[in-house]
């Protein structure tokens, strides 16, 4: 029998470990890999990728009807109920978007933001990710308030971009939170932002990077390779790309007509529900293979499928 010796890769680098939550609450640790995703024969993978589920502080207007069908009731019931149902659906974390702070969605302020976070923290004991409404000035306003109000809870706060990184990084540093550094689908820009943030003396193990999710058919090929390159660079020993990666297959996967439109689309697209879920899971599996450490998802069935896949990928006894 010919002897086949499998060459192993011994990488010099290691992905940083980031701990979310904790204190009196559950904690989730991500990162710490010394190998490419799920290649157990090359190195160690101390923590499985974690799944967060999206919730918003006001019922979303334009989500896909498929999501409406599963979340509709709890969305109307309120934030606490929604967060609880998310954890029931398998979420390791809850990702809260402070949508109402958007000037077009109510333009609420710091007080309401703190209130919303308080509700979620009271309803569930998993770690919490908090996103601002995505407008730099408003993000700064509400995230600083949340950061101050919940000092020491190790929330992950975002998005922090090269335009406004100073404010968010400063508040996360002061209050012991995690910062989510977002850059537009480019390995260099992602690394540059990490350097800028660490130049402010933020510890490297309190940064998650979000290299921007391009959904299946909408830039996935770019995101995929940017992630893969970031991870290879990290394992080669580049400490400025070694932050765990957080991606949003839920938000992006459900944004386009492929996951939203039932009628008036080609019959080859097939059934909407199955298609929408597959759009989210396919985006997610690609990101897992490229190095995602946290996936923020939306549909419970998609979460179930991806969690089973992760379990298989983490097993070493096949």
């Amino acid at each position: 029998m010919p002897a086949i010796l499998v060459p192993t890769e011994k990488w010099a680098g290691k992905v940083r470990e980031v701990t979310l939550g904790g204190d009196s609450r559950k904690k989730v640790v991500v990162g710490g890999e010394t190998t490419l995703p799920f290649l157990h024969f090359d190195g160690v993978i101390p923590h499985a990728p974690a799944i967060a589920i999206d919730v918003e502080d006001v019922a979303p207007q334009n989500w896909s009807p498929v999501l409406g069908a599963v979340w509709g009731d709890v969305m109307r019931e309120g934030l606490a109920a929604w967060a609880r149902k998310a954890v029931e659906a398998g979420a390791d974390m809850v990702a809260l978007t402070l949508r109402s702070a958007d000037p077009d969605m109510g333009n609420t302020g710091p007080a309401e933001a703190v209130e919303a976070v308080k509700k979620v923290l009271a309803a569930v004991d998993v770690p919490l990710i908090v996103y601002g409404p995505g407008i730099a000035a408003k993000d700064n306003e509400v995230l600083v308030a949340v950061s101050d109000a919940f000092a020491g809870k190790r929330l992950a706060l975002g998005l922090c971009e090269d335009k406004n990184y100073r404010t968010i990084v400063a508040t996360c540093m002061a209050n012991g939170h995690i910062v989510i550094a977002n850059s537009p689908i480019d390995i260099n820009l992602a690394k540059q932002l990490n350097i800028l943030i660490t130049d402010m003396d933020m510890p490297g193990d309190r940064i998650l990077m979000d290299p921007t999710t391009g959904a299946l058919g909408y830039g996935l090929e770019y995101t995929y390779s940017v992630m893969e390159r970031l991870r290879v660079a990290a394992l080669l020993g580049d400490s400025m790309t070694a932050m765990p990666m957080i991606l949003n297959p839920g938000r992006e996967g459900w944004r386009f007509k492929e996951a939203k439109t039932r009628d008036g689309v080609p019959t080859q697209w097939g059934d909407l529900e199955g298609r929408g879920i597959a759009w989210e899971t396919t985006t997610a599996i690609a990101q897992l293979q490229a190095g995602a450490d946290i996936l923020v998802m939306r549909h419970p069935k998609a979460v179930g499928l991806v969690k089973r896949a992760i379990a298989s990928l983490m097993a070493t006894n096949y």
Binding site: I187, N188, Q192, I195
Partner: peptide
Amino acid sequence: MNEFISNLFLPHTDI
């Protein structure tokens, strides 16, 4: 483009 963007940094993204 890739080189260019990594150079839009002082002195360089890869110190």
